[in-house]
């Protein structure tokens, strides 16, 4: 083992161990807030792990979505929880110490430990020479319209998955709205520093989002990462205490939310009527079409994520 391998091995071990410890601490933390903080740290650590396993696309997605948005979502939820829970008692309610509870816990723990050991053996037993679909992807990459293999898989080879996934996102928002949304949070007084930060960052976020989108055609990046950065801009907007004008939260908002899915579906419908395979790209125009779809998807993803963070329900007559 040369020194490079050794350093890498230590690096990976530290990351892995850190992940396990952070996850354990985050979940076992007696205070929810601490748990969330540790979870955010866990997400950041995860993105380093992604980088280490040659998955920069995933690292980008993890940072944008996992670390950035999930953290904000969790913290916002925790703050709202505070309103409905008069004391913090239940949050750090002492773990029950009855005999039955303890037995239950230790049984669960030992069972899961057994599962973990079994999984470890299995993973070690997996064939080491499994090629996966890397070769197939590489062979068809030229016909896909983009040169980034991950984007080719996401938008072309398995574009149908992506369509469904866009819909999962929209559905989540629909679900939030169908619950009646959450009451608007009291507007905290504007803070000059924060306000300025948001004013400076938002154009940069827009630009970066577009950059990630563009990069996605040939390098790590793509609609999801771009959308997440866009969504982060929306979150920042909301956190800075800015109210979006009434007229943008009705039909305009809805149209933005459905732009991606409906363009995708329109394409699907076209292929159906034209008697082609579902979501079959014409080879010459695949590149342009993918970019168009990605632009629409980015807009929708960004808007949806921001709307999920705001979670206030639509501001027109229904749902209010």
């Amino acid at each position: 083992m040369d020194r490079l391998t050794l350093v890498l091995w230590i690096f990976d071990s530290v990351t892995g161990l850190g992940l396990l410890l952070l996850a354990g601490w985050a979940l076992a933390s007696p205070q929810l807030f601490r748990g969330i903080i540790l979870f955010v740290a866990f997400s950041l650590m995860m993105s380093i792990a992604w980088v280490r396993i040659d998955a920069p696309d995933v690292a980008l997605a993890e940072i944008a979505i996992g670390a950035g948005l999930t953290g904000a979502l969790l913290l916002a939820a925790l703050s709202r929880l505070g309103d409905s829970e008069p004391t913090q008692e239940s949050m750090n309610r002492p773990i029950e110490r009855s005999y039955r509870a303890r037995t239950f816990r230790s049984l669960t723990a030992s069972l899961l430990a057994a599962v973990a050991v079994a999984l470890v053996f299995l993973i070690l037993a997996l064939p080491g020479d499994s090629e996966g679909l890397g070769a197939e992807v590489a062979a068809s990459l030229d016909a896909s319209g983009v040169s980034s293999p991950v984007t080719a898989v996401l938008l072309n080879f398995r574009g149908y998955d992506t369509l469904l996934e866009l819909l999962v996102l929209l559905l989540a928002l629909l679900g939030v709205w169908s619950l009646g949304g959450l009451p608007a949070q009291p507007v905290s007084p504007a803070v000059l520093v924060l306000d300025t930060l948001a004013r400076i960052l938002i154009p940069v976020l827009l630009l970066s989002s577009a950059y990630l989108l563009w990069a996605g055609t040939h390098a790590p990046g793509g609609a999801f990462q771009a959308g997440a950065v866009l969504g982060a801009a929306g979150v920042l907007l909301s956190l800075a205490g800015w109210q979006v004008r009434q007229r943008y939260t009705g039909v305009t908002l809805r149209l933005l939310l459905i732009a991606g899915p409906s363009l995708f579906l329109a394409f699907a419908l076209y292929t159906i009527v034209a008697g082609q395979s579902l979501l079959e790209y014409p080879p010459q125009r695949a590149g342009v079409m993918i970019v168009l779809l990605e632009v629409a998807a980015t807009l929708s993803i960004g808007t949806t994520l921001a709307a999920l963070f705001v979670a206030e329900g639509p501001r027109n007559k229904e749902g209010q």
Binding site: E136, N156, R158, S277, L279, E280, Y281
Partner: peptide, 15 residues
């Protein structure tokens, strides 16, 4: 079987 995107298994999804 309907090969979505005309790729076909194993690369693409099939209905």
């Amino acid at each position: 079987r309907h090969a979505v995107g005309a790729w076909g298994a194993p690369l693409g999804i099939e209905l």
